[in-house]
């Protein structure tokens, strides 16, 4: 099982329209909705924003990983969006966000999926990975960058 399992091609967006945090997250959630990952988009977004209210998921370096755990999520998934112009996200370092990974996790998910998410999270810490993601223009390139260690 690899990253494609949770980050399907339909869930990748190379050019987010929005420049605002909440609407950008919604754009990605719409992709999930279309792929039938969410039973109720609003409820899911509520969970995400609630998490966001605790503390921003804009971890700096132009990366944000908003995430929500909810029973309206049918399978663990990631939607990935890029923004050239940057999204104002009240990140920890105050800089705009260019890479957003929206994570959706059901209340009860198996560890295989969670492992993939944790590996992805680990990768985002590395400068070279972030740079490669910024440069990537095709879905295959994205997969290449994010593919698991296995």
């Amino acid at each position: 099982m690899g990253i494609q399992e949770v980050l399907t091609e339909e869930l990748i967006c190379f050019d987010l329209k929005s420049n605002e945090k909440e609407t950008a997250i919604r754009e990605l959630a719409d992709l999930m909705q279309k792929s039938k990952i969410l039973e109720d988009e609003e409820l899911y977004l509520e969970a995400v924003m609630k998490r966001e209210a605790e503390f921003t998921t804009g971890i700096g370096y132009g990366v944000a990983i908003p995430h929500g755990k909810s029973n309206v999520v049918t399978k663990p998934s990631i939607a990935f969006g890029k923004s050239k112009s940057g999204i104002s996200y009240d990140s920890m370092d105050g800089k705009p966000v260019h890479l957003i990974f929206l994570i959706a996790v059901p209340e009860n998910s198996n560890n295989e999926h969670l492992k993939i998410l944790s590996q992805l999270s680990r990768k985002l810490i590395h400068q070279d990975i972030r740079d490669s993601l910024m440069k990537a223009v095709t879905k295959d390139e994205i997969y290449e960058v994010l593919k698991g260690d296995e």
């Binding site: 990983i65 994570i103 999270s121 985002l124």
Partner: peptide, 17 residues
């Protein structure tokens, strides 16, 4: 971290790096 999905692992990786 509170949800135990992302930050836990990012922090771990950041510390390791």
């Amino acid at each position: 971290c509170s949800t135990g999905i992302a930050h836990t692992y990012m922090a771990a990786e950041a510390l390791e790096v």
